[in-house]
Design a protein around this nucleic acid. Sequence first.
DNA 1: GTCTATAGGACGATAGAC
DNA 2: GTCTATCGTCCTATAGAC
Lengths: 198, 198
Amino acid sequence: MARRERSRLPAPERRGQIIAAATALVAERGFWGLSMQDVADACGLTVPGLLHHVGSKDGLLIAVLEHRDAEDRRAIGDPPPSDLRALCAALVRRNATQPEIVRLFAVLAAESLAPDHPAHDYFAVRQQGVLDSLTTLAKPVTARPEALARQIIATMDGLQLQWLRAPAGTDLVAMWEAAAQMLFGGPTASAGRPARSR
Amino acid sequence: MARRERSRLPAPERRGQIIAAATALVAERGFWGLSMQDVADACGLTVPGLLHHVGSKDGLLIAVLEHRDAEDRRAIGDPPPSDLRALCAALVRRNATQPEIVRLFAVLAAESLAPDHPAHDYFAVRQQGVLDSLTTLAKPVTARPEALARQIIATMDGLQLQWLRAPAGTDLVAMWEAAAQMLFGGPTASAGRPARSR
DNA sequence: GTCTATAGGACGATAGAC
DNA sequence: GTCTATCGTCCTATAGAC
């Protein structure tokens, strides 16, 4: 009777495995619907084994979000594009390749509206930070940079929800391109490959 | 020792009370985070008493959504405004007065992206229906009615999220008005009271 | 670093009395 | 229409062995 394979990984790799599994499960059920048992099963661990690595259920969520932040910084590049339209196009193109991550944020963004949600503060800070960044970039473009920034963020968030609900019938990049034409005017200037700004 | 007051309401009123309590709690925690015990407590009932009225936890959610649909139809009026911009402004003005309902939809819309969520089909049908309606209304306005409809829906959904996360610092109607000027052009024509541009 | 064992609740749902 | 009592399951977390 073959005993369940339990490969005894070194801590950092195990942590990566745990975060990957948790990312998928949180995207699926949210934090309230997440079960430590399911995460442990997905990693071939028992629940106490899992808790040894992340401390608690809240700790697991925080690990997932911190990992996402690190990945995002890496992917966007430092410094990020300084042209607003090019930056948006780059973000959308990247999001279109990873629906699971987009869903993670969509689900947690809504769930965390509750003040006692463990990611409440994280998303409040994040929303303000993104708004500030885009507002700064919008200053050369319009007389009302904050209004434009808010609308860009809203459009991206909203289009992502439509896309996630009907991924077969919709193309996120095409939807954004259509929206960008209305927001920025003129047909696609910066949506193409080059996108090297900076 | 005063026994808990348990007023033995007639069924229809009790049902209304249950739906109101459940609406608030689902908005707060989502469906996965909802506990029948909490709903029962909020109504001065025991859990079996609650189940007598709604059958199951899924049944409770369905009752909440059906009640919302009925309320919405009542509020928008029949027939609804046939001018696209006026209809949007009316929707936004109404939503601004009931953040709890907006949050209910925001949380369930995200949670229900999971195919096995009890409201998955409800939101899929709803999204398509809203898109179809707005697309029809957009036909006189633009050469690409579906793109405009999608962007309007995205903008409303996204702005609502921003508003719910920082209700103190933001005004939903003002945010929409700014967005509408970019989407439809020109300052406010149909937003209700004169609402001078700015 | 991972396990077994278990504590200690909360959960949704059912049966049957009143 | 609402109760009491209870079932069986799931949950997070801890203690301590290996």
